[in-house]
Amino acid sequence: MDATLKKQLEITATKVRLGIIEGVFNAKSGHPGGSLSIADLLTYLYFAKLNVYPDKPDEPSRDRFVLSKGHTAPALYSTLAQKGYFSEEELKSLRHIGALLQGHPCITIPGVDMSSGSLGQGVSVAAGMALSAKYQGETYRVYTVLGDGEIEEGQVWEAAMFAAHYKLDNLVMIVDNNGLQIDGKISEVMSPYPIVDKFKAFGLHVVEADAHDFDSLEKAFNEAETVCGQPTVIVMKSTKGKGVSYMEDNVSWHGAAPNAEQYAQAVEELTAHLKELEG
C-alpha cells in the first residue's frame, strides 16, 4: 500500500477510535470492544475501498455495507461521521432519547444501508443485496461484517450455503475473529472453529488477514475482487478493544462503557497516538 495512504488511514482509524470512545462514554452503555476491533477495517473500507457518496447516501450504484454484528454500531457511526455523512457531534447523543444514532444500526440513518443487530440476519440481507445486484445487472459490490461469536447462529450457515449456491462473487463476508464473546472465549463458550475450514466446506473462497494491518487488508480485499463464481470470506484476526490498552483482549469490555477516569485514559492514549502519527 502507498505509504501516504497508509499513514492517512492510520490517522483516520485513530479518529474513528476516539469517536467510538466518545459515543460509548456519553451513552453510558454500548459495545466498545468489538467496535475497536473493526475500526481499522471500517476505515479501510470507507476510505480506500467502497464506492460511496456521503453527499448522495442513496446513490443506487453505490457499494453496499451491512454491519451484521450490529452491536458494534459505534464503529460504523464514527466512521460515517469521519466520512462526512453526519456531524461528529451526533456521536455524543448515541443511544439518547430522540437521537439520530440508535443503539443498533437503523436504515434511516444517513449512510446506513440496513438495520441490523439481531445476529445472523445481516449476512442474509447482504446476500439478498448481492443476488439482487446480479439479477438487475448492477456492478456494485456488497460487504458485510460478522462477529466470530455471531457465526454460532445457524442462519449464518444458511446464508453461506445460499451465497455459494447462487455464486455471489460480488459478496464479501468479513469475520471479525477477536476470539471473545459476551460469556468468554469463543473456543470455550461454543467453539465455531475451525472457521476457515467450515466456510471452505460451504463452498466459499476464504482469505485470512490481519485486522490491524492495512497492507494485509488491502491484499485480502483485492484478492476477493479477483474471485469468480464464489463469494469470499475474509477471516480477519483481530484484537478486541484494539487501541485502548486496558480494553485490549479483555472480554469485560464487550458491552460496557468506560467511567470518567477510564474515558480520560482512553482519550489520552488515542490522542497521544494521533499526535505521533501526525508528527
Binding site: V66, G128, A130, Q136
Partner: peptide, 25 residues
C-alpha cells in the same frame, strides 16, 4: 430466472428478501 429457491431455510429467505427489497426489487 425470476424464481429463487432458498431451500429449506426460511429464516435466511426472509432476510434475503429484505436485501432484495432494499435494492429495488
Amino acid at each position: 430466472d425470476r424464481h429463487f429457491d432458498c431451500g429449506i431455510a426460511e429464516s435466511n429467505m426472509m432476510s434475503v428478501a429484505a436485501g432484495m427489497a432494499a435494492t429495488g426489487l
